[in-house]
Amino acid sequence: MAKTRMSSKGQIVLPKAVRDAHGFGEGTEFEVIDGGKEIVLKPVEKPAAGRKLTVEEFLDGLPRLSLPVDITDDLIREAIDQEAKRKWDAENGR
């Protein structure tokens, strides 16, 4: 297992063996997924120009969250409504 250390600026260097094994070069973007007791770095794969994502690719790209409550359709609708109202108020000076 490779180890690394965070700098005073919060930077973490991936060991060369890991970068080489996965083909990570300069400028590679990573999604940082907070899994509670662990943090996962997932390389961001950009779709080829002109190519649309499949539903499976889109869903695989969504972050997985561990929440203390079960998500229901009603909770999702409430969150969407709250965000829509917040944006409406912000755009209309309220």
Rank of each mutant, 00 (worst) to 15 (best):
M1N: 14
M1Y: 13
A2T: 12
A2Q: 11
T4F: 02
T4P: 01
T4R: 05
R5Q: 07
S7M: 05
K9H: 10
K9G: 07
G10A: 05
Q11P: 03
Q11K: 14
Q11V: 07
I12T: 03
V13Y: 08
V13L: 15
L14E: 04
L14P: 00
P15H: 04
P15M: 00
V18N: 03
R19S: 01
D20I: 03
D20M: 06
D20W: 03
A21P: 03
H22L: 08
G23A: 00
F24S: 01
G25Y: 01
T28W: 02
E29Q: 15
E29N: 12
E29G: 11
E29K: 10
E29L: 13
E31L: 10
D34A: 07
D34E: 12
G36K: 04
G36A: 02
E38N: 11
E38I: 11
E38A: 11
I39L: 04
V40L: 06
V40T: 13
L41V: 01
L41Y: 03
P43E: 03
E45A: 06
E45F: 04
E45C: 07
K46E: 12
P47G: 06
P47Y: 04
A48T: 04
A48K: 02
A49S: 14
A49E: 14
A49Y: 10
G50R: 02
G50Q: 13
R51Y: 08
R51A: 12
K52E: 12
L53N: 02
L53W: 01
T54E: 03
T54K: 00
V55E: 15
V55G: 13
E56Y: 07
E56C: 10
F58W: 05
F58G: 04
D60A: 06
L62V: 05
R64E: 07
L65S: 04
L65D: 07
L65P: 06
L65R: 06
S66I: 11
S66L: 14
L67S: 01
L67H: 01
P68K: 04
P68N: 02
V69E: 12
V69T: 14
V69K: 11
I71M: 10
D73W: 13
D74W: 08
I76N: 10
I76P: 07
R77P: 00
E78M: 10
A79V: 03
I80P: 08
D81R: 09
D81I: 12
K85R: 10
K85A: 14
R86T: 12
R86K: 15
K87V: 13
W88Y: 09
D89Y: 12
D89Q: 14
D89P: 06
E91T: 11
E91P: 08
N92M: 12
G93S: 14
R94V: 08
